[in-house]
Simulated assay, not measured.
Amino acid sequence: MRRSFHYMVFLTCFFAMCACRNQPPGQSVHDRLLEAVLAGNREVVDSCLQNGGNPNLRDDEGTPLLILAVNAGKPGILESILRYRVSVDARRQSGYQSTALMETALRNNLEAARLLLSRGAGVNLRDSIGDTALHWAAFYGRLELARLLCENGAGLSITSREGAPLDVALWQFNDAVADYLVAKDATMRQSGEFVEAVRAGNEAAVKQLLKAGANADQLDESGSPVLVIAASRGFFNIVKLLLEKKTDPDLMNRVGQTALCRAVYFGHEDIAKLLASHGAGINKAGPHYRMTPLHAAAKSGQSTIGQWLIEKRANIDAQEGISGYTPLMIATSYGRQDMVKVLIKARANPHIKGFDGAALPDLINYAGRPEIARLLEEYMLQQ
């Protein structure tokens, strides 16, 4: 049986080598190597590398083979490439000029991240806007990847155009990552009994502490007001208690999100309406990120709440502060069909461009949702 097994392994390797050596006329070993990586064929990848394939190869757009391997989702192929003298921190020549380690966040590829780190990948290298791999993990909400990066020396205080990793996690509503980064940062003071009671949703304790003089405007370690925390977590009665203590309904967290913005994102319609009844600003947002409640509805696909916000005179064409995207652009890029319909009905402007020059047709292609594409193409023809 062992001889048969080894013979089968030999045949497999032999045919893989033939596949690389006997490529179609005009196709080089490098072309074959690129095809094999994209197809996820490790046997052919191994054969091509053994027969002179360049592990530092790039495709026509300047993307390194290493990044293509990470995004192919086949750790075995990445492992094969890393056996050779390869530049582990090679960057894309376009886009954000990201490294392979950064791009492990796209598909939450933990195994690839471990391999790259074991080969010395730069954990604190920055992309073209100053983001590190930890910023990428925070953006995509990859908690375990964030843990791995921090264990390997990722900097918590490195700031980019988008802020520190904690700012990015909060901005993208990735609260599990944000909570981890707060706990990891030794420079942040402990929040205290009142904040912990709010976080836990302990209504009786909150009521008792408020009666004893607790500050209804108190902030947690990261600068989030307790009202914002309660609204995010759906604690209606605690939000009501805080509002009865005359806390400002428009208090913001460190990235300029109000309690209303966060209640909308997480689908807490009752809390959103309670906040509005106490004067919360429908279009209120901080000056840098400028994430309004309607942007939040577009991002999370809360179409019913989105319709309510529009009826309350939300600015349907407001541009978010980092990307310049409008609610319609955000709903399109996240594939939120019902929200797209709500915004079309409200006559949202389909011709605004993001700060990077991206227009709605670009986002339609990115989303890859034919039903949304049909809706928007028909709408744009009418404008």
Score class of each variant (00 low, 15 high):
Phe10Arg: 15
Asp270Ile: 09
Leu243Phe: 07
Ser300Tyr: 02
Leu376Val: 03
Arg21Gly: 07
Lys74Cys: 13
Val226Asp: 03
Asn124Tyr: 10
Asn54Ala: 11
Ser160Lys: 03
Thr99Val: 07
Asp356Tyr: 04
Thr99Arg: 01
Glu377Val: 12
Tyr7Ala: 12
Arg114Ser: 12
Gln208Pro: 03
Pro350Arg: 01
Leu57Val: 08
Ala164Asp: 06
Gly53Trp: 04
Val264Gln: 05
Leu209Asn: 05
Gln307Val: 08
Gln50Ile: 12
Ile305Thr: 13
Leu117Lys: 01
Glu371Lys: 14
Leu219Trp: 10
Asp338Arg: 14
Ile158Met: 11
Val86Ser: 10
Asp127Gly: 02
Glu269Ala: 15
Ala39Leu: 14
Thr99Met: 04
Gln319Cys: 11
Glu377Pro: 04
Ile282Trp: 02
Leu360Trp: 02
Gln302Pro: 01
Gly73Cys: 08
Ile344Asp: 09
Asn56Cys: 12
Arg262Pro: 00
Tyr96Cys: 08
Ala276Met: 15
Leu241Gln: 15
Pro225His: 09
Gly281Gln: 08
Ala359Pro: 07
Glu79Pro: 02
Ala314Tyr: 06
Ala216Arg: 01
Arg369Trp: 06
Leu363Gly: 04
Arg189Tyr: 11
Ser277Tyr: 07
Asn215Asp: 15
Asn152Lys: 15
Pro24Asp: 02
Arg262Asp: 04
Val29Ser: 00
Val88Gly: 01
Ala137Pro: 00
Leu376Arg: 07
